[in-house]
Simulated scan of single mutants.
Amino acid sequence: MSSSHDLDGRPVDWLHDNENLSVRFGLNVEDPDAQRRNQGAHVRMFADARLRIAPDRLFANVVAATRGAALSIEVRSRALLGFGFRIATGAEPVVDRLYAVGRPEPGDYRSATVRRFQRDNQLITVELMRARLSDSHDRDALQRLWSCEISTWQVRQFLDPVAGRVYDHRHLRFPRPAAAPRTSARAGATRSLNGGEGAAAARVNAGVVWADGSAEQRFERIQVQAEDDPLRERIGLLRVHFFVTDAD
């Protein structure tokens, strides 16, 4: 008998803190180990979600994934030169300080995608919380892995060690692209777990962020010489809770 719960929420294509920070969770389709585990898997995102058994509690941002799915996390922020970002659970960082300083999109937006933990080349996966209670983990410790925070901040100056050049707001690494008609990452049809549009109800259990498998992603190395304070001068901060969808 399943002990999963009904989750009601608004399906979305992006999760947002503000117009300067958006995050998108999807399946990792790059790493061979992730490709194997993601056969038949899915990931969906919901905003303003509630469990029907606890309707007074609001989950502003939810990721609902197949158990064991390997994730890809795309972080998008507006920054003239580039931005730093951190993805962290209540227990430890997934990535601590990584930087997006590549070619910008119109509006000075940049994106960075991560598929692995920064420290050890393991995949970012979602596991069933209750299944890990028997792995010498207590419930309080697992509760800290139920959610994560994604934050970004401005980079003010950095050295590209390959080019041997220093870039700042007066000496940009790339020319600014021509302005485009104003659009939002919110655009696009929303999707439910059943592939339709509009509101959705999913059968879920609490999930945890888990390091597993092998990832091959490599990160660009730069030397940051000036940046905003990651705690006090953020571009944005977004908190996400994880659920495992019912496979019964």
Rank of each mutant, 00 (worst) to 15 (best):
W146G: 10
S136F: 10
V166N: 04
R203H: 09
V162E: 08
D160G: 01
V204I: 06
F158A: 04
D135C: 07
V209Y: 02
R132I: 06
A187Y: 12
L133M: 13
S151R: 04
S136I: 13
A141V: 14
R232K: 11
P181D: 00
V155D: 04
Q217A: 06
A189T: 15
H169I: 14
F174G: 02
D160I: 04
R182C: 11
I235R: 00
V224L: 01
L159C: 08
A211V: 00
R221Y: 13
D212V: 10
S136A: 12
P161M: 03
A180T: 05
L231P: 11
F219E: 13
T152N: 03
F158G: 02
D160N: 05
R234G: 06
A131P: 02
V155R: 07
R182Q: 15
S147Q: 13
G188V: 02
E197S: 14
Q143P: 07
A163F: 08
L231Q: 15
D140N: 14
G164A: 03
E233Q: 11
L133S: 07
G213H: 03
D229P: 02
H171D: 15
A180I: 05
R173W: 03
A215Q: 04
A178H: 09
A215P: 01
A202K: 02
R176H: 09
R203C: 08
T152S: 06
P181L: 02
R170G: 13
A179W: 09
I235F: 00
G164L: 06
W153C: 01
S136W: 10
A202I: 04
L145M: 06
D135W: 03
R165E: 13
Q223N: 14
G213W: 00
I150K: 01
A178T: 09
V155M: 07
D212H: 12
S151V: 06
P181S: 00
A163L: 12
D140Y: 12
P177H: 01
R170C: 11
R139H: 08
G207W: 05
A199G: 15
G164C: 05
L159R: 09
R218K: 09
P230H: 01
A200G: 10
W153V: 01
G207C: 05
G213I: 05
T152A: 06
R218T: 15
S147Y: 11
A185C: 12
E197D: 14
A226P: 06
D228M: 06
E220Q: 13
S214A: 13
V224K: 00
F158K: 01
P175M: 03
R182I: 12
P230M: 02
D138W: 04
A141G: 14
Q225I: 08
S136D: 15
C148A: 14
P230S: 00
R232A: 14
A201Y: 07
L145G: 01
C148S: 12
E227C: 06
R191C: 10
R156N: 09
L142M: 07
F174W: 08
R218G: 12
F174I: 00
I222P: 03
D138M: 08
Q223Y: 11
D212L: 10
Q223W: 11
A226S: 07
R191F: 10
G236Y: 02
V209P: 00
L142F: 05
L142C: 06
E216M: 10
S214E: 15
H137V: 09
V224H: 01
E197L: 10
R232T: 15
R186E: 13
I235D: 01
H171I: 13
N194S: 14
